[in-house]
Amino acid sequence: MKRAAAVLAALVIVVLILAPLRLNGYAINLLYITVLSIGLAYGWNIISGYAGYFSFGQIAFFGVGAYATGLLVADLHWFWMPAAFAGGVLACALAIPLGYVMLRLRGPFFAMGMFGMAQMVRVLVTAIPATGSGSGLFLPPGSGITEVYYWTLAICAGAIALTIWIDRSAFGLRLQALREDEQVAGTLGVDTTRAKITAFALSALIPGLLGGGYALFLTYIEPDAVFSSRLDLQSIVMAILGGLGTVWGPLIGGLVMTQISEALWARFPQIYLMIFGGLLVALLIALPRGIVPAIADRFAARRNA
């Protein structure tokens, strides 16, 4: 069983690495957006799935990463990969003080607070004159989608590896303890502040690193495009659909959602969002905890039978 899974994983990785050699621009584009959304869903899953702090503002770190990369590439003529890396580090560094303040809020107050915080970060970032504010920022054209795709694939793989580690580590147990009951976790000796700020910073690092690639992909960024509430919501729905706080939830949820969405929009351009919304509601009613826990339950039931 374990060996089969390892072989399958290796196979998938090889296919994904070789994919650009055989695919046309549209297919790579689609693959890129899929991997990007899955990566964002993994980022969100750490703070919101494992630690139980539901955030509606992680896209702020994506935007920070995108703009930092844009400025480093356009104004300081950095090569884009180190620039995108710097963008991720900056987003992560920014998350530490922000997390220190924001994570004092709990439940719906944290969710709303993060929504507001994302707006604030957006305003602050675009207040920097060099970002061109609402006029947007042009990046030099050149790096093709293939490079951006590999970058995004690597980060997404890293995010999955990180999640596997969290799922098995004492750190992960601490996060789950504070998700279930933060006060009890505290009395049991868990340094809750430190654990949740670490989770928050990791949940900022991943979108921060992905944002730089996205800036290169668009070659023109403006606030609406990178502080995109659509990308934010999409990644949240993916993680929930797949299964909150599970290792494979964001991946499965992401694959299911992008496949359904892509199959629908070209065929039913007028009513696709309606069908899509309906399907999503139906899926979540049928599988309230998400796809992965539902499958796990099924397996567990069979083993016990």
């Binding site: 549209y26 689609l30 996205y214």
Partner: peptide, 9 residues
Amino acid sequence: PATGVRLYE
């Protein structure tokens, strides 16, 4: 914008 790019592809 990202959708526009994808559609031209």
